[in-house]
Design a protein around this nucleic acid. Sequence first.
DNA 1: CGTCAAGTACAACGATCGCTGTACTTGAAC
DNA 2: GTTCAAGTACAGCGATCGTTGTACTTGACG
Lengths: 202, 202
Amino acid sequence: METTEATAGATRGGRGARERILRAAVELFASEGIHATGVAKLADVAHVSTRTLYQHFPSKEALVGAYLQRIESDGAILGETVLERRDLGARERLLRLFAERPAGSPSAKVVRGCPLHNAAVESAGTLAEASAAVERHKRQFAVRLVETAAEAGAPQPEALGRQLAVLFEGARALSTSLNDMGPLDDAEELAKTLIGSATGLT
Amino acid sequence: METTEATAGATRGGRGARERILRAAVELFASEGIHATGVAKLADVAHVSTRTLYQHFPSKEALVGAYLQRIESDGAILGETVLERRDLGARERLLRLFAERPAGSPSAKVVRGCPLHNAAVESAGTLAEASAAVERHKRQFAVRLVETAAEAGAPQPEALGRQLAVLFEGARALSTSLNDMGPLDDAEELAKTLIGSATGLT
DNA sequence: CGTCAAGTACAACGATCGCTGTACTTGAAC
DNA sequence: GTTCAAGTACAGCGATCGTTGTACTTGACG
């Protein structure tokens, strides 16, 4: 159940401080924001001295870069893994994408929306990596949706996939802003209709 | 063509520094981010000394508050004024909402997405006004969509209005992240279908 | 035990930035 | 011309925060 060790290579064996730091980054940057999270708090949560942190990452900006990479590679963080499940039919995968609810059921506070998007917003012009990472990820996600739509037998997979991408994005964003699950239900309803009429309801 | 003078009351007549400051805030906070915009730059763009700025607003946080109010009240900033046009039928208003393209046509760089949403993201937990303002505005926008859907004669205005709200939000967000007008076109296409089949295509 | 890399404690520097005190200027109204 | 509010110039304080230097500890391994 260990996360993929895509972070090795820099240090030899040691006590695995780097991994703890990265996990703390994922936790804190995502929930409290990048700017609001100081290196002191970061080191504290990671059970590491700030000095050690700087022996693994040359700067906070570099750590943010690693944080972005991790989020982008570890799809589970964004809750988009349903599309990868090979034990489900393409149509079912699309339906479940909109049926699943991220994290804890009701009263799931502190939902701050897509961490990638937030990172791009926080670092307005500086830190171009963030903007690039969001763009890359969202584009890839849309492509996956189009592919799945094609696999599901939709007559116009391009249109369906991209429209579902817009819908998914809107559902997440609006439910975050409103602090309300409603939009997720609305999107699910509409997605069901679209997918149904495109793949022919048996 | 003057913006509504909702900001008067504090100062008597003078030279109207307050208004210039607020305009600079709208310009800079929206395009470069709140945190990235220091009071010095703000005062500079407003052609005002920082000292004067602090004679109009007790703190930067207060200025941000005024900035949020202005954005919320001045609907033109967010490009959602189409819904108010009484010279158009309800159905036409809905269609145009998705047909219009915000600001300069192609190569409209520096599109940073919804300023309200961004403000809420930037001020993670601090500055609860921001979160409240976004929620209030998005909710009100959805209500307006539902009302317009009803006026357009949709059989289920609640469902249509809320779904269009999700769609609109997704289109804006995705096109910002991708730096690409595509999602706006996709959303427009889908919106046309939804509105058409709900109000009966003549 | 001795070694060596990984980690630590702590103080401090330097830069940024919000904010203020003070003395000064300006321009309109009477 | 006097008056008074509005605006200005500028230096500087205080707090936060990223970053680093130095001397010290710890624990696995031969």
